[in-house]
Design a protein around this nucleic acid. Structure first.
Lengths: 103, 103
DNA sequence: TCGGTATTTAGGGAATTACCAAATTACTGT
DNA sequence: ACAGTAATTTGGTAATTCCCTAAATACCGA
């Protein structure tokens, strides 16, 4: 679980996950979305892979990255459990945003 | 938000938050729960403070730490939003089976 | 004000992270 | 086999993280 939080701790990696949530992307497509060298992005991909947050499949010369939602949701569950807020198992209704009553 | 994820990325800090969810603790009580030197724990407290995840109040010679649930829940919301979990606009994409986990 | 308790700050070392350019691997079409 | 495209690995440096011991700060009671 530490690997997952660590992976989420970098803004570039969070943006990669957000892009992958919409659809799968090749490594090159993802790399083009950032103003960083490709080896740098390749390193970020490796962190996401090691956390289990993405999976990869070769297609010709390209590598297709996909988000692994079940792992990401586990992190979410763990966080919710730590905070003692409602579980995601049965989100029947749209969860309204918490209104903050303590402060 | 990066500060919050960064703070969550260390197991000691996550355990501190879990302890604080049950009740407020002094710095010394928290430090006693770990096999680490007190200055090390003090550093972890500082990371949590800078992320806004905890607040602190002096009471005599002790410092009382409390979890700041609203900030933690904001991180939760952000994560849920990033994953599209519990959100009204879930993508209806048929998830193709990712067969290979090459690693 | 002095001594004791609680906690942080200062300073330093080992390990990790983030970034880049250059080299390498994997695949495809000819 | 050769050249071209896609992506990773290698090797290097600067910045950051994590942990420690020692010193400083804040508070309290006598």
């Amino acid at each position: 679980m530490t690997d997952v939080y660590r992976a989420l701790a970098h803004p570039v990696r969070r943006k990669i996950l957000a892009m992958l949530r919409k659809r799968a992307h090749t490594a090159g497509e993802l790399a083009d979305a950032f103003d960083l060298a490709k080896p740098t992005l390749s390193g970020h991909f490796a962190v996401l892979r090691e956390a289990g947050l993405v999976s990869v499949e070769r297609q010709g010369t390209s590598l297709i990255y996909r988000i692994n939602l079940s792992v990401a949701e586990e992190a979410l569950s763990s966080l919710m459990n730590m905070l003692g807020v409602g579980a995601p198992e049965a989100p029947r209704k749209a969860a309204s945003k918490p209104k903050g009553r303590k402060s």
